[in-house]
């Protein structure tokens, strides 16, 4: 590994990966809340369209979607995006669809009496959502969102296939330039792990604050990134990575 490769490719690659993760996560959060909150809309057309969106984007593969946005969109619709934005769009739409099920599940898990009490106090639907439902639902969403964020971080490696110079892309270049495959790939695996670890710590901090806001403490957990879950939660987490389901 030469200093030039470090300065010109790997370190900027790390920055691109971080940016991609943040932008895609922000976009995915907007999509997740937007879709997740209208999945139970009283209008059937809204329910149908949001359900259709979720099934399509969870059904297909993120990599295929990325190729589709990069190669088919410019030809079919004469609309070409910068590779970076095509990547953010693909990741955001895919992980937003996964996230919408988390939002829906957390909102559904708020005790019905809370909803009824808010109606009895004649809160408007928007007030009910903003003042009663979401403050209780959001702390529940953070742990599954953390898992999804790690999946998203891992998913950003796919963008190297559509020519976005992220860590994986820089590693490919470095491998071609120096031939030190073992060193380079070991190094970037460690980089990804460190990023995942840092993101988990930040999310736990967020969870602690959100739970403190409603007078709860987060459960105690070890130093690991992965959470130890019960069988039913494991099942919910796995079904969240695929289509046709929903968080129980």
């Amino acid at each position: 590994m030469t200093a030039g490769l470090w300065e010109n490719w790997l370190l900027p690659g790390v920055w691109i990966t971080i940016q991609l993760t943040l932008y895609s996560a922000a976009f995915a959060t907007v999509v997740a809340f937007g879709i997740g909150l209208v999945r139970n809309s009283p209008l059937w057309i809204v329910r149908f369209l949001s359900g259709f969106y979720v099934e399509i984007f969870r059904g297909t593969s993120a990599l295929v979607l990325m190729f589709w946005l990069a190669f088919v969109m410019p030809l079919a619709f004469q609309w070409q995006l910068f590779p970076m934005w095509a990547a953010v769009l693909a990741l955001g739409l895919t992980y937003g669809a996964y996230g919408s099920e988390i939002v829906r599940g957390a909102v559904a898990s708020v005790a019905p009496a809370q909803q009824e009490a808010a109606i009895a106090l004649s809160f408007s639907p928007a007030q009910r959502m903003r003042r009663v439902i979401l403050p209780q639902a959001i702390p529940e969403m953070i742990p599954p969102f953390n898992n999804l964020l790690i999946e998203l971080l891992k998913g950003t490696a796919l963008v190297s296939a559509v020519m976005v110079p992220d860590i994986t892309f820089s590693a490919q270049l470095s491998r071609l330039a120096t031939g030190e495959s073992a060193e380079i790939y070991s190094l970037i695996l460690v980089m990804y792990f460190v990023l995942a670890f840092v993101l988990t710590r930040l999310m736990r901090l967020l969870e602690r604050r959100a739970k403190a806001g409603i007078g709860q403490f987060p459960e105690k957990r070890g130093p690991l990134v992965t959470r130890k879950l019960s069988p039913s939660k494991e099942s919910a987490q796995s079904s969240n990575l695929i289509t046709g389901g929903g968080v129980q």
Partner: peptide, 17 residues
């Protein structure tokens, strides 16, 4: 823990190269 929290794509390249 390490394998689970690093990208499959990079692991694939690692094995392949």
């Amino acid at each position: 823990e390490f394998i689970r929290n690093t990208p499959l794509l990079v692991q694939l390249f690692f094995f392949f190269y």
